[in-house]
Design a binder for these strands. Sequence first.
DNA 1: ATGACTCCCAGTGGGAGA
Length: 256
Amino acid sequence: MKLATWNVNSLSVRLPQVLDWLAANPVDVLALQETKLTDDKFPQAALAEAGWQAVWFGQRTYNGVALLTREPVDAVVRNLPGLADEQARVLTATVAGVRVIGAYFPNGQAPDSDKFVYKMRWLDALRAHVAAELAAYPELVLMGDFNIAPEDRDVYDPVAWAGQIHCTPEERAQFQALLDAGLVDAFRLFEQPPKSWSWWDYRNLAFRRNQGLRIDIILVSEPLRARVAACTIDKAPRRNERPSDHTPVVVQISPG
DNA sequence: ATGACTCCCAGTGGGAGA
């Protein structure tokens, strides 16, 4: 089973690239973030024509998530139970027996901002959701745009980014709390090239200079850990014309 | 340098992203 996550920064703009990527990378699940589409505008027909099922949850202008799958999904939950939220950020569903949570974590803007307060509340609610889902579904994958760089090795310039958004102790403690709930970072189960990033700023020739962050992450539950066969970042779509600033992360899980 | 780019909604600029 292969699962992937990709922040596409507008599905309207990126749909052709998503279809191309899926044709070359026939995963079982692709979680999308930042679709930036109201539900009536979701390109369900074009995806169905290419052979993909989808569940989607969006809004105007910002945020918006989707799960693209080969097989139909079950038991869909939108957003986080217990958190009243205007923003469409989470889809949870069962795919081939595995509980999948696709999430677009809040950016947080700056550590002293109201948006950071919201990010912390959202992360508290996510942790409660993960704990409840894990109790019901031991085989669970949480993947998406975390907007947290878990460690200094996930940041191209950790000195410059120290204490900045994505790198604050509070955000990293929240990431650790997700691990403590019974999850493991699939990417770090393997030897990886240094300077492995999943996002590069559009500005400053950041991609050409390989100045990025690893903020797109796949966590798997402990019962799945031994079955994780590979986890890789696919940099190729970042070289496309009109790329997203994020690129896909893929995990392969062996049959149980 | 509170920069640089891209997207969206707007409407000949501004907010947000990270």
